[in-house]
Design a protein around this nucleic acid. Structure first.
Length: 420
RNA sequence: GUGCCUGUAGCUCAAUGGCAGAGUGCUUCACUGUGGCUGAAGAUGUUGAGGGUUCGACCCCCUUCAGGCACCCCA
């Protein structure tokens, strides 16, 4: 490689093809979000460190946020997540807003982590929240919205599963087996991680928290109980609503789902690719006091976040990314010769005035112009040579079917519209 | 932040410490009104970067950068 100045570690360049994919993804998010009446919003990418001081998992802020002094010397944070920003925005207008709020967002975030597959330092995230409701119905709505999004992009329920648990249920069960209150947070973190550690290592870690052998056994039995949810009134209701919402196939109970962020208080969920080859696609849950920490009145809600990286990897693995995105509706206007350049310019202009997208070539051998059109990925190429001009026609070639016909200028519009 | 693996042509990858290659793509021509196929010719490298060992390094050693895997954390 030559001495090209390198991009910042963990960032990505979006060349037109990749940008088209991202735009496509945003279209789908928007469609899923709006179908449930959610409105788009956005906050700043720069925040004060104070905003995060009281919230999030401490590690997310202390270890992973990009923090640097601005020119005045005040610490500035590149947002590592959106929830604190959302909390502030809601708190500032708490008296004016109409609750429950249904809001979604898509924008960039930064975390100073070691990059690997599915994880970059700069990434985009779909955030969606329903704020001001404490109902199980709200929880079910968000999960159904996620499932509808998967369905919309072609990820069927045999490819993606949304795993559900409830922290209140787990808390009750741990109390029942005499786990000390102060040990619970650490134990829950270990439960969240059980699939990542070898069984003996995991048991050793749990024992280190002070659990006796019979308690460890009880925890293991809990985590193996796929019907544990039946003991939860909330989860029973939840699954009933999920069925009414028509997304049961996507949803499954899993007692190992806990979630890392501290502010979840009720139902929590995570979406995973079925074969387990990827990190979590999205994660979220119910919180009871979103706004309190930033100075507002307590407000409950439910929401989730989905990074762009993993979902795109999953979509690619299943061949679900739209194939031809480069120039789906652009027309390529060839130039027959230097003499006829002005004629081609004129026709291109005419078509643009009618609302079509037109790339105008430069005079060259027609073979080169067609090859260029082919490589660009346009569908139609137009030819305006002496024969066509004499009869007031235009040669229209469909580059995919290799069929070409000469038609009058006035018919051009209908041809393009018909073929899209 | 810890441990391990990888880095060679635009792309996918070869090359016992002994002349850096193949496939594909690219350029030109056969083809003076047309991109599919065919044939002919051609171009392409600081072997990620820097240092060391050696008569000689893509290969061995050190440093560094980037990517990947596990941990950590999480989207």
């Amino acid at each position: 490689m030559k001495n090209i100045i390198r991009s910042v570690k963990g960032t990505r360049d979006f060349y037109p093809d990749e940008m088209a994919r991202r735009s496509w993804l945003v279209e789908k998010l928007k469609e899923a979000s709006e179908s449930f009446g959610y409105q788009r919003y956005e906050g700043p990418c720069l925040e004060t460190i104070d905003l995060y001081a009281a919230k999030s998992g401490e590690e997310l802020v202390k270890e992973q946020a990009f923090v640097f002094p601005d020119r005045g010397g005040d610490p500035i944070t590149l947002r590592p997540e959106l929830t604190p920003t959302l909390a502030r925005m809601v708190a500032e207008k708490q008296k004016q807003l109409v609750f429950p709020l249904r809001w979604w967002s898509f924008g960039p975030f930064w975390r100073y982590e070691r990059p690997q597959k599915g994880r970059t330092r700069e990434f985009y995230q779909w955030n969606i929240d329903l704020i001001g409701s404490d109902s199980v119905q709200a929880d079910a709505e968000l999960v159904a919205l996620a499932a509808n999004f998967f369905n919309l992009v072609g990820l069927k329920s045999d490819m993606v599963q949304i795993l559900i648990n409830d922290r209140r249920l787990m808390d009750r069960k741990l109390t029942y087996i005499d786990v000390q209150t102060e040990v619970k947070p650490e134990l829950l973190k270990l439960i969240d991680r059980i699939d990542k550690q070898p069984a003996d290592v995991w048991e050793k870690n749990v024992a280190a928290l002070g659990l006796k052998a019979n308690q460890i056994q009880a925890v293991k039995e809990l985590l193996a109980d796929a019907r544990l949810w039946e003991e939860s009134e909330e989860l029973s209701l939840f699954f009933k609503y999920v069925e009414a919402l028509g997304v049961s196939e996507y949803v499954r109970y899993d007692p190992k789902i806990i979630r890392g962020l501290d502010y979840y208080t009720g139902i929590v969920f995570e979406a995973h690719e079925a074969r387990g080859d990827f990190r979590a696609i999205l994660g979220g849950g119910h919180y009871s006091n979103l706004v309190e920490d930033v100075g507002g009145q307590p407000l409950p809600g439910v929401g989730f976040a989905m990074g762009d990286v993993v979902v795109m990897l999953v979509l690619e693995a299943y061949g679900l990314l739209p194939a031809e995105l480069s120039y789906p509706k652009t027309v390529f206007m060839t130039v027959f010769s230097d003499d006829l350049l002005v004629e081609s310019i004129g026709l291109a202009r005419e078509l643009r005035e009618q609302g079509f997208d037109v790339i105008l070539a430069e005079p060259d051998k027609l073979s080169k112009q067609f090859k260029l059109a082919d490589r660009l990925g346009v569908k139609f190429a137009l030819v305006l040579g002496p024969d066509e001009l004499e009869n007031d026609l235009v040669g229209v070639k469909d580059l995919r079917t290799f069929e070409q016909e000469s038609i009058s200028r006035s018919e051009l519009k209908s041809i393009f519209n018909k073929q899209k």
